[in-house]
Amino acid sequence: MATRTQRRSAPRSQRRFRMRPTTILAYTLLALGTTVMVFPFLWMVLSAFKDAREIFRFNFWPTQWMLANFREVLFDTDFPRWFFNSLLVAVATTASVLFFCSLVGYTLTRLRFPGRTLIFILILATLMIPTEMLVIPWFVISADFGWVNSYWGIAFPGLIPAFGVFLMRQFFETLPRDLFDAARVDGINEFGLFWYIGLPLVRPALAALGIFAFIGNWNAFLWPLIIAKSPDMRTLPVGVALFSGEAGTAWHLIMATNAMAIVPVLIVFFVFQRHIIEGIVLTGTKG
């Protein structure tokens, strides 16, 4: 590999010159894509400011910036309660996901033990069954254990998602083994290795996982719908579903609710995304 790259060597000055057009090209391409990516999102947010009739017209900007939809959702529905429930479940689940998925992912790559591959395949296999089919057995279990209509009941299916385990496993796999062996010599126990050496090195992946776990639970619909029986246990997506009925759909309220529901997700994204970049830069290469 190294020899091949060597052959294609070019003088340093020329390389620095070439960096500039690349950067310009990157900005141009990204700017072009921006429209496609952000337009529907903006449309959704702007629609939240239009009334029940204007929302179906084609003007991009609202003729009048109406706050009536937000007011109706905030004061005439259980929105605050839905919001609280969703937040509680999403935060608790995300914490569980970050801890357990990284622990399992770490164990499956960094530790050697009989049955490692089998356990990995078994966990991965749980990804291959659509959750739509699991709601019936889950509900039977929940009824037996009294989990119906409880936060634990809403949260349990998402506590250790297999995709998170898989993600962390793949990222731990990229780490050099020597590092852990060296620390092991120092007499740190295995949990210490995971906690003090493994985790800091996969911070970008943890940040990504945190974003996905939060969004996944924030948007979960079918199971929270089935397990929550009373109105005060409804989560946001379940609440939003109440706006569509037999004789029509209140799109202006759906859009207003969604526009408000997106705020915590954006906050989570901005908080975590910093770590996607900073993780390794701090710990890895400055030494």
Binding site: M37, V38, P40, F41, I215, N219, N258, I262, F269, Q273
Partner: peptide
């Protein structure tokens, strides 16, 4: 980054509608 991530955070019903 946020712009390219925006579609992922948009709820499915709103995406479908737009």
């Amino acid at each position: 980054r946020a712009i390219y991530f925006a579609p992922y955070v948009t709820p499915a019903a709103a995406v479908a509608w737009v």
